[in-house]
Simulated assay, not measured.
Amino acid sequence: MMMSLGPYAPFIVTSYAAAALVVVILIGWIVLDYRSQTGRLRELERSGVTRRSARSSTDRP
């Protein structure tokens, strides 16, 4: 079953393709940023920096 998009078919198809491309780019950007941030956190933890949430209530000043 083929849907008829009429004379606006090129615009509609291009719009959906552009929207899909933007979503794919954003997903890729998020994945790369996640990897970068987890790497930075690992590096900080290796150097001895701890997270405030990891401290116990007796460690706080």
Results as ranks from 00 to 15, higher is better:
M3D: 00
M3E: 14
S4W: 01
G6E: 07
G6W: 02
P7Y: 03
P7L: 06
Y8Q: 13
Y8I: 14
A9C: 05
A9G: 00
P10C: 09
P10L: 08
P10R: 05
I12A: 08
V13D: 03
V13W: 00
S15Q: 06
S15C: 09
Y16G: 12
Y16W: 02
A17Y: 11
A17V: 07
A18G: 10
A18W: 03
A19T: 10
A19L: 11
A20R: 05
L21W: 09
V22F: 10
V23M: 07
V23T: 09
V24A: 15
L26N: 07
L26S: 14
I27D: 11
I27P: 03
I27Y: 04
V31K: 08
V31N: 02
L32P: 05
D33F: 06
D33E: 12
R35W: 14
S36Y: 12
S36A: 06
S36R: 14
S36T: 07
Q37S: 08
T38K: 15
L41W: 13
L41D: 09
R42N: 14
E43I: 04
L44N: 11
L44P: 02
L44S: 09
S47N: 10
G48N: 06
G48K: 03
V49W: 04
T50S: 12
T50A: 12
R51G: 11
R51D: 01
R51K: 13
R52K: 14
S53W: 10
A54I: 04
A54V: 07
R55F: 02
S56L: 02
S56R: 13
S57P: 15
T58R: 07
T58P: 07
D59E: 11
